[in-house]
């Protein structure tokens, strides 16, 4: 599947379901099978990184990597490196179990007396 097919919504969905990290891998720039599918991936990823950083998720949890089909070794390296990084960061605060810690609107609702 072309990396240009990876909608930002898929990435957000993965984080929402509790993924600790998301790795997006695509063909190198200029070697796109479809011409220029990966151009937009590059653009999307930078904006996404800034967005998740702003809401308090570490931008390290999202990674974009250009890996061609023939680069088996690179793929293995990238994955193990990424896994290491994520292990250091610890589980995502959006894990369903952990999310219970942030009772939605708890303090606020209490303060203004709704419910």
């Amino acid at each position: 599947m072309c990396s240009g097919r990876i909608s930002p919504h898929f990435i957000l969905k993965a984080f929402q379901e509790g993924a600790d990290g998301v790795l997006v891998a695509g063909c190198h720039i200029g070697e796109c099978h479809y011409g220029k599918g990966n151009y937009i991936t590059a653009k999307r990823m930078v904006v996404m990184k800034e967005l998740i950083q702003f809401i308090g998720l570490s931008p390290t949890r999202l990674r974009l990597e250009w890996i061609a089909t023939s680069e088996g070794n690179k793929f293995a390296q990238v994955v193990s490196h990424f896994t290491e990084e994520i292990t250091q960061l610890g589980p995502s605060p959006l894990r369903p179990k952990r999310i219970a810690k942030f009772k939605p609107g708890q303090e606020v609702v209490g303060a203004i007396g709704i419910r």
Binding site: I55, G56, S58, I99, P104, G105, E107, V108
Partner: peptide, 21 residues
């Protein structure tokens, strides 16, 4: 104001805000 906060505080801030939705 928000960018000054630490990562964890930012997350806490936004989650309590979004939780009001």
């Amino acid at each position: 104001e928000i960018e000054k906060l630490t990562e964890e505080d930012r997350f806490q801030y936004w989650m309590s805000q979004f939780g009001k939705c």
